[in-house]
């Protein structure tokens, strides 16, 4: 429906490339930097307009190029789209903070990763006759939102560390990079991991069962190894947070490590062949 609407408006969706929305997000980031020097309403609204334009182009691109889901490219594109929506809503919620300085680079990083992801022609979701469609969808959705949660927790952790160091340097009141307070950042982090961990675990379990059923992947498959390691770090993070009652800096550092494993899970299959459909379908 949105696709036909855009076509109806005379937009040629085939001409929308990754560079269109990457440029919008990059400009929004530049304006975020500019706002540090000269805060003001016009810049803020221009930045929002750019992010919104990027979001429209991003959606149109996914609608025309990444559907049906094929390969890791489309999954990372979806992940970056959800984070772009999150960024845009945050620009209204956290108006006076340098929110975008932390969120936009993650979005741009994911867009860049998607750009270089091998594009498999094989659909991720199998045809209905194979009878696994619903489980593959659940596996995909759970993992996608688990990854969104981890990305949000990562950004909150980065902000937490910067804010913490500002406080330690006693430079927080005149800080050139304004940020939400530590408690708010902890709350964002806590909510994000509380949502992400169960989703991520369920997604992995379903994927594991599918793998056993189809026997399509080996135990040494790069996707499986990196996802398993990511889950272990994630579990360690939850353990440290809730059982050992560790808070603050160490939790933030562990979250950054977990995000590193998420990136590894996206990048490693380029070099270490994987049979997973999102890795390009290399057997």
């Amino acid at each position: 429906m949105p696709l036909s609407l855009l076509h109806g408006l005379g937009m040629n969706l085939d001409r929308i490339s990754i560079y269109c929305f990457a440029a919008c997000y990059t400009l929004a980031f530049v304006l975020e930097l500019g706002e540090l020097l000269r805060p003001g309403r016009p810049l803020r609204w221009l930045r929002r307009a750019l992010a919104a334009a990027g979001l429209v182009a991003h959606t149109a691109y996914i609608a025309s190029n990444a559907m049906p889901l094929q390969g890791g490219h489309s999954v990372v594109m979806l992940l970056s789209l959800i984070l772009a929506v999150y960024y845009l809503s945050g620009t209204f919620h956290y108006q006076r903070t340098a929110w975008g300085l932390f969120v936009l680079p993650v979005i741009l990083l994911l867009v860049a990763l998607a750009r270089w992801q091998p594009q498999s022609l094989a659909p991720i979701v199998p045809p209905p006759e194979q009878g696994q469609q619903i489980w593959v969808w659940l596996h995909l959705v759970f993992l996608l939102f688990g990854q969104v949660g981890l990305c949000v927790a990562f950004m909150a952790s980065l902000m937490y560390l910067v804010k913490w160091s500002q406080l330690r340097r006693k430079s927080v009141l005149g800080a050139s990079v304004p940020m939400p307070n530590l408690e708010r950042l902890e709350t964002i982090h806590r909510r994000a991991v509380n949502l992400a961990f169960p989703l991520f675990t369920c997604g992995l379990l379903i994927g594991f069962l599918l793998m056993l059923q189809t026997g399509s992947m080996r135990w040494s498959d790069s996707k499986l190894v990196t996802a398993g390691l990511l889950w272990i770090v994630f579990a360690l993070l939850m353990l440290v947070r809730y059982l050992l009652h560790v808070r603050g800096r160490w939790v933030a550092l562990l979250t950054i490590l977990a995000f590193g494993f998420l990136l590894a899970a996206l990048v490693l299959p380029w070099f270490w062949p994987s049979a997973h459909p999102t890795a390009g379908g290399v057997p």
Binding site: L167, L173, N181, L182, E183
Partner: peptide, 27 residues
């Protein structure tokens, strides 16, 4: 006030101390 930072920040020691608390706690 909109175009300069002339009125930004507090100058009483007590209110500066309280401003620090706002940087840590949300509620």
């Amino acid at each position: 006030r909109a175009e300069t930072r002339l009125a930004e920040g507090k100058v009483s020691v007590a209110s500066l101390a309280i401003d620090h608390l706002r940087q840590v706690f949300d509620r």
